[in-house]
Nucleic acid binder design. Sequence first.
DNA 1: CCTAATCTCTTCCTCAGCGAAGAGAAATCT
DNA 2: AGATTTCTCTTCGCTGAGGAAGAGATTAGG
Lengths: 150, 150
Amino acid sequence: MSTPENAGVAYRRYLSALMLHGHAGAKAVGLGATDLYALNILGLGGSMTPGELGRRTGLTTGPTTRLIDRLEQAGYVRRVPDPDDRRKIIVELVARPTGLDEVLAPARQKIGAIVQGYSPEQQAVLFDYFARAADAYLEATTELHDKRAL
Amino acid sequence: MSTPENAGVAYRRYLSALMLHGHAGAKAVGLGATDLYALNILGLGGSMTPGELGRRTGLTTGPTTRLIDRLEQAGYVRRVPDPDDRRKIIVELVARPTGLDEVLAPARQKIGAIVQGYSPEQQAVLFDYFARAADAYLEATTELHDKRAL
DNA sequence: CCTAATCTCTTCCTCAGCGAAGAGAAATCT
DNA sequence: AGATTTCTCTTCGCTGAGGAAGAGATTAGG
């Protein structure tokens, strides 16, 4: 049942299903791939300047400006002047991203129900895994990014 | 540590990190969002005709043909004639997708190491979760798809 | 046998997103 | 204060992906 090879297959299936869902959700609300990418970066890294966002998305300044324009127009982010440096602007995530969360909500409810079906100890294992896996993915993504920058 | 609200935050962080990594990996090997989407569909649903693939990606026939062209040229899929119906063609995933797996391998190793750090009972919980969550996401994606088809 | 339906592929057009280069404003350094 | 650097934003041209319509080949039905 959980032999090593089956485990790998199951995990790949899980990953694919997850990415499929994310993509379908983004498409349903008319969000481009780069847009979703940027939203994830902002959600994980917190507010940042357009320059920093451009660096992390791998975009030059022109597309970055228009990326923020799109996100701002769609109501996902907001431009706030930096009080310390008046050249700079800070891009921050608006508290309640309107469309995407609603589209993704049914899946979250299903996941929530699954998680609640486990015992407290088992839930602790899952949450521990989520935290560690998130770190691992972020680290791996950073390494990917560094390689591209060669 | 794992209060309900913290759990939600941790899970969102996990999800974001995962999608970020997938996107960065696809970008690193020059794969578009739709390409990756199609590869996931093929991996989960098995071989299918271009028509079926187009339906699931939400593309019309023209873009679907070129999508398959791109994937075939990149060595990810193969066109095989259908023996029963000579109008049809079957698109099947090539056994060893060349570039993407290598790019994503470091992250998988990290995840593997994390999983192996748990006890057998704990690992069983994780794998059980993976299987159930995959089903839940696939179901939710299907529902999303049906809504779009209205 | 001949018509209608099905499936893939091709062609043409449109448009969104990216890169490069430069302009303008503000901070830093001498 | 003047010069340089650091930001963001704008403009231009280009590539690439998607939609619409139709052609060609094959199967199914009257």
